[in-house]
Structures are given as structure tokens and as C-alpha cells.
Amino acid sequence: MTLAGYVVALLTGLERWEKNGEGRHAFPDARLAGYVTDLAAPAAAITSSLDGDRRLAELLLGTRLASHSGGAIAYVPTRIAD
């Protein structure tokens, strides 16, 4: 998730989603890999125990990224489409 272009939280495990009758999506396998605890002096809290999640969180949290907003959450793909 980004705030003004800065990564403030990182969710992983978004490969599978479900849609309800109201058009809302849920990600049943989502994991919070980490989040930023202070925006003035970014400090990251890493929450996942999975190595891949931890590496992504350490790499991305507090950095500035171009993202695609789908509403309250902005998405950044981790793979380039073919």
C-alpha cells in the first residue's frame, strides 16, 4: 500500500481473490509482510516469518514507487506481464 507514493505497508499472497455479490474483493491468502511505523523518520516493522515476504518488505517499505490506485489501496505488480 502506498501513501503519496511511499510504500507504507506490504501485503503478499494476493494471487487468489474472491468477489462477493456487492462487487467487493477479498484476498483469503493475503499476508501482511510489514508496515512503516513512522512517516517522519521511516522505520519498518517486518511481520511475516516467510523469507520471501521479509526480503520484499525490507526492499520496498519506505521507498517511493509508482502505483496504480484501485481505491483505498494502491497496487504495485511484482512481476512484469508478458
Rank of each mutant, 00 (worst) to 15 (best):
A72N: 10
E15D: 15
F27E: 12
L11E: 03
S67E: 02
Y35P: 01
Y35H: 12
A81N: 06
R54C: 01
D82K: 04
W17A: 08
R55D: 11
M1Y: 08
E15V: 03
T2A: 10
P42C: 08
R54S: 06
E58F: 04
M1L: 13
L56N: 02
G62C: 02
K19M: 15
D53E: 06
L56H: 05
A66F: 11
A57G: 12
R55Q: 10
T78D: 00
T2R: 06
R24P: 01
N20T: 05
L3P: 00
G34I: 08
A74D: 15
L32K: 01
Y6N: 13
G21A: 13
A43C: 06
L32A: 03
V76G: 11
L50N: 11
G71E: 13
G71T: 09
R24S: 12
A40S: 15
Y6I: 14
L56K: 10
F27S: 08
A66D: 09
T2D: 02
Y75N: 02
T2M: 06
S67Y: 02
L10I: 10
V76R: 15
E22D: 07
L60C: 03
S69N: 11
W17K: 12
L14P: 00
H68K: 06
V7Y: 00
L61P: 03
R64I: 08
H68A: 09
R31H: 07
L61E: 07
A41Q: 14
V7R: 00
L39G: 04
S67R: 04
H25F: 13
L65K: 11
T63P: 02
E22Y: 11
R24V: 09
M1T: 01
V7W: 04
E18K: 14
D29G: 07
A72F: 06
A44N: 08
G70L: 10
T37Y: 02
V8A: 05
D51K: 14
R24K: 14
G21S: 14
Y35W: 14
D51F: 04
E18M: 09
E58I: 01
T63K: 15
A26P: 03
L32V: 13
T12P: 00
P42D: 05
V8W: 02
L3Y: 13
V76I: 14
S67L: 05
P77I: 06
I73Y: 04
A4R: 15
L14Y: 03
G5W: 11
A30F: 03
M1D: 05
A74Q: 12
H68G: 04
T63I: 09
D38E: 15
L3C: 10
G13V: 03
T47W: 00
L56Q: 05
A45R: 15
T47M: 05
A4P: 09
G34P: 06
D29T: 10
A26Q: 13
A30K: 02
R79S: 13
A81R: 14
R24E: 10
G70I: 08
R64E: 14
T12Q: 02
E15M: 08
E22P: 00
A45K: 15
A41E: 14
A30T: 06
L56R: 13
L60V: 00
G21H: 11
I46M: 01
F27H: 13
A72I: 06
G62M: 07
V8L: 07
V76N: 11
R54L: 02
A33N: 01
R79P: 00
R24G: 02
S67G: 09
G23N: 11
E18P: 01
R54D: 02
T63F: 08
V76W: 12
L60I: 02
S49H: 14
W17L: 06
G13W: 05
A57M: 07
A26G: 12
L39I: 12
